[in-house]
Amino acid sequence: MEKKQKLICDQCKVELEELDAQFSYLGKSFRHKVSRCPQCGQVCLSEELVNGRMSEVESMMEDK
């Protein structure tokens, strides 16, 4: 994996940090560390995460 790119929250003009965010799907919720603005909490998910791990988890939950 290449080095995490620097991302900036356009609203707060601060750099995003790796912070917990909560997700839910099919009635279950869970937390995961993602890029998030430390001020306003805006999240930014990379395509790598969405089409990788997230899609895996979605598929797994659908099979359960």
Binding site: L19, D20, A21, Q22, F23, S24, Y25, S29, R36, P38, G41, V43, M54, V57, E58
Partner: peptide, 10 residues
């Protein structure tokens, strides 16, 4: 998946 924004974070 839904991003639960109103949740408590950090």
């Amino acid at each position: 998946m839904k991003i639960e924004l109103e949740a408590v974070w950090n």
